[in-house]
Design a binder for these strands. Sequence first.
RNA 1: GCGCCCGUAGCUCAGCUGGAUAGAGCAGUGGACUUCUAAUCCACAGGUCGCAGGUUCGAGUCCUGCCGGGCGCGCCA
Length: 580
Amino acid sequence: MMIETAIRNALKEPLEKLGIYEEDVEIELEKPRDRSHGDYSTNIALMLAKRLGRKPRELAGELAAGIEVDRDLIESVEIAGPGFINFRLGRGYLVSRLMALHGGGALEEIRTGGDKRINVEFISANPTGPLNVVSARAGAFGMTLCRLFEAVGFDAHSEYYVNDAGRQVTLLGASLRAHYMQLRGRPVDFPEDGYKGRYLEIMAGELLEQNSKAVEEAAKAFDNESFQRITAPKGNAEDWCELDEEKSIRSFAKFALMKILGWQRETCKRFGLRFDTWYFESELHETKRVERTFESLKKSGSVFEEEGAHWFRSTEYGDEKDRVLMRADGRPTYFLADLAYHHHKFQRGFEHAIDYWGPDHHGYIPRMQGGMRALGVQENWLEVEILQQVRFLEDGRPINMAKRQGKFVSMDELMDEVGADVAKYIFLTRKPNSHLDFDLDLAKEQSNENPVFYVKYAHARICSVLRKAESDGYAVEAPDRDGLGRLDHVAEQNLARELIRLPEVVVSAATAREPHRLTSFVTELAALYHQFYTQCKILDAEDRPRSEARLMLCQLTRNVVAYVLELIGVDAPERMGEKE
RNA sequence: GCGCCCGUAGCUCAGCUGGAUAGAGCAGUGGACUUCUAAUCCACAGGUCGCAGGUUCGAGUCCUGCCGGGCGCGCCA
């Protein structure tokens, strides 16, 4: 960061000699892919060549000659290619950045968020079945984004919205009731569009066998504060059967909701997801927030009545058509409830909100953002990130997942098959908007060939060396300038240069909402460590000072790898377990 | 028909605000363990970046049009 301004400043004087001033041109600095092109590069000569009517290379030469800079910071300035000016960083700079990394200053510099409160909502799956594996990707992204936000100094808040009101829940209750009645030998018609998954059959079986105990057990899982809203239905399944149909369905629905939310929460926990808030839709209705939001919208003048229904004029906000808020029979639409939810989210004091949605909801964005604007919320407050769907392949064929049909791979199955760490890592090596094919067979078979093990192994390997160093009596000292200054092997240099990128990688991953930059970075880091390990003998009794310097590099690498793995929620082992 | 996303090596995917010879993993071939963990390393092979135009010093990246695939276009949630 500092170094870039130093380079820009150094270019100022020679530019002024050519009659080019700061306001005339922006000096672009980039980091060449190819190390032989230096650490920083500028295309300024190429940009100005035409304007000045000069040859780019000639111009570059003139500029380079006029550059004066501290040789400890910038070792060399060269002209290359069609007219690039390349800068090579000096050893002193590298050492001071490594020290900043070790002392924590490098990560402190990027904590510029000022504790801005950001809400990140993800998964928010319907509480009608076990978590589907498509939620796993959202979980990995959402949780990592929260941790990235914390790293850059925001106050991130993870949230899960529970649609526990409305038709689906009724359908769920009716489905469970039908299964139960079936088992009791008093069959009722299975609801059209009901949930056909095996899990409801099993649940009905439990109810039959355990009766009141099943209800008590389910209720126990809800001692948690965030789940206080859910209370057990009165009595047991036998009692529910005797109620009139509507009440009966409601009791079964309540029970199913408790069970399913319990599963979902356990699954999340197992996947390493922690939600600060589980927000229940029913609360919006009970507290009249839906109505109040409706009133606010009416006041905004964007609501009109037609055919008995109340519509939001979302076309004024770039939507294709206007949308119904309140049906003719007085029931609010899902859209209105969702607006109420986000309105409340805003009122709860979040300065920014990010929602992770599936690609099937992208058409929903304009009306949602339009609604928020009509409610007086600034335009960019709500940010919607679309996560493309994962296609799961089995036997080379995509699995068709339909929750109502009960055909899907659950998140738990995924964890059983490939493990949570492997799954998370694979999801996080792809950018959010890429359509990802996840070959389950391949993931199962090759879980040991997975890149995640490559990185884990690097970490374990470092720990192993450090253990060995201690037991062999080497001084494992905290990194210092003298030691780090002794690192001169090309493999050491390559590793060190990558290490100091950590802060910028974290910042870019957070601001671009692209956690996959973390996995790219840590994979590359692991590769450079493995190369260093192969090329450089770390523990050498003949050369203690060198060994100690290398041990410092090992410690730094271990810390950075562990830090990044923590961000993506993957365990950093001190030793590898037995290979299968 | 309209809108959003994608199309890069045999497969799964990277490629940061346009930059120099397009990368990684897996799969393939050939090497490296009496030495700190070989779940590693090294080398080789593998490409009209879907196609065609355009913008410019320079395009995988930006614009337009096609082709191919996914998703959406409800008073469902």
